[in-house]
């Protein structure tokens, strides 16, 4: 487990599937730590900057939603991020400790009525930029897959 939280203590741990797990308290300032950690692990794949941009964006959007909407910015609640590369696929899962949300009926942020709204683009961008996006039934765990080749 990689804990990027209150103490700055770092500890690596892998789950049974070989994924690396990062656990952070619900603090926005830690978004970049999480994305940097995952992007650094992709260095051997020599990916183009545009692809790394997309991956960073999706990680930060997903973790931000988990912090803000899932955990209501409660610093006593954690966000758990796991990632693994297998068969040239980057698999990232982001889980919060909230009740979840109705991910099946999200408003389309690109339609005229919503285009000037201040929110609603994060999940939309994730769905457009990742290759596979799946929520668990309750909506408090998101799985994203990006093909690396």
């Amino acid at each position: 487990m990689i804990n990027l939280g209150r103490s700055g203590f770092l500890k690596n741990n892998k789950d049974r599937a070989g994924a690396i797990i990062i656990k952070i308290p619900s603090e926005i300032k830690l978004l970049r730590n999480v994305s940097s950690e995952i992007l650094e692990s992709l260095a051997p794949y020599k990916m183009e900057d545009a692809a790394l941009f997309d991956i960073r964006l999706c990680i930060e959007e997903a973790v931000r939603n988990a912090i803000v909407h899932g955990n209501n910015c409660d610093k006593n609640r954690d966000v758990e991020v796991s990632y693994v590369v297998e068969h040239d696929k980057l698999i990232i899962e982001v889980a919060d400790q909230g009740k979840g949300f109705d991910h099946k009926h999200l408003p389309d942020p690109t339609v005229e009525d919503n285009i000037t709204r201040n929110n609603g683009r994060g999940v939309y961008l994730i769905k457009r930029l990742m290759d596979i996006v799946e929520y668990n039934e309750s909506g408090n765990r998101l799985k994203m897959v990006k093909y690396l080749k």
Partner: peptide, 16 residues
């Protein structure tokens, strides 16, 4: 070098 959904929303707000 980087814009996220909050950045897009901020630009929309400035425009409005």
């Amino acid at each position: 070098t980087y814009v996220d959904s909050s950045g897009l929303a901020t630009l929309v707000e400035i425009l409005k």
